[in-house]
Amino acid sequence: MGHCQELSEFKRGTMISCHLCNKSISEISLLLNIPQSAVSGIITKWKQLGAIATHPQSGRPRKMTERVRAC
């Protein structure tokens, strides 16, 4: 399972505007070609925090993945 790219602020804003226009999560997912889990996560975060901007990660990213270490 790969790590997905971060969505742009424009796409996140588009999701929120579609949600405010009473579109369902599945409709938004089909419209923007983004998984439903990502759409629901962004909408939930927007409801809780009121913002769509990304926050910096805490800590340094790992140099090697668990898969590489196992080999």
Rank of each mutant, 00 (worst) to 15 (best):
25 I>N: 00
26 S>E: 06
62 R>V: 11
3 H>L: 11
63 K>W: 08
44 T>Y: 10
1 M>D: 04
59 G>W: 07
12 R>A: 06
66 E>R: 14
14 T>H: 15
29 S>L: 02
3 H>P: 00
54 T>M: 01
7 L>V: 00
24 S>Q: 06
26 S>A: 09
1 M>N: 07
64 M>C: 07
32 L>K: 05
37 S>R: 02
32 L>Y: 09
64 M>F: 14
62 R>C: 01
17 S>P: 12
45 K>H: 10
58 S>A: 06
26 S>Q: 05
41 G>L: 08
22 N>V: 04
47 K>I: 12
41 G>E: 00
36 Q>H: 03
58 S>C: 00
9 E>Q: 13
41 G>D: 05
22 N>K: 10
56 P>K: 02
10 F>Q: 15
46 W>P: 08
50 G>V: 06
2 G>C: 09
24 S>K: 09
46 W>V: 06
59 G>N: 01
21 C>I: 10
44 T>Q: 15
56 P>L: 03
35 P>C: 11
40 S>H: 12
57 Q>D: 04
4 C>K: 12
49 L>M: 12
38 A>P: 06
27 E>N: 06
18 C>K: 13
17 S>K: 15
44 T>G: 04
19 H>I: 05
57 Q>K: 03
47 K>N: 10
61 P>R: 06
46 W>C: 13
63 K>V: 02
16 I>L: 11
13 G>V: 06
55 H>S: 07
9 E>V: 14
65 T>N: 03
20 L>H: 15
12 R>T: 01
51 A>Q: 13
65 T>M: 03
50 G>A: 04
23 K>E: 08
9 E>S: 14
55 H>F: 09
67 R>D: 02
30 L>F: 12
71 C>S: 14
33 N>Q: 09
27 E>I: 08
14 T>N: 14
43 I>K: 01
68 V>D: 07
21 C>D: 15
68 V>Q: 15
8 S>V: 03
65 T>G: 06
56 P>E: 02
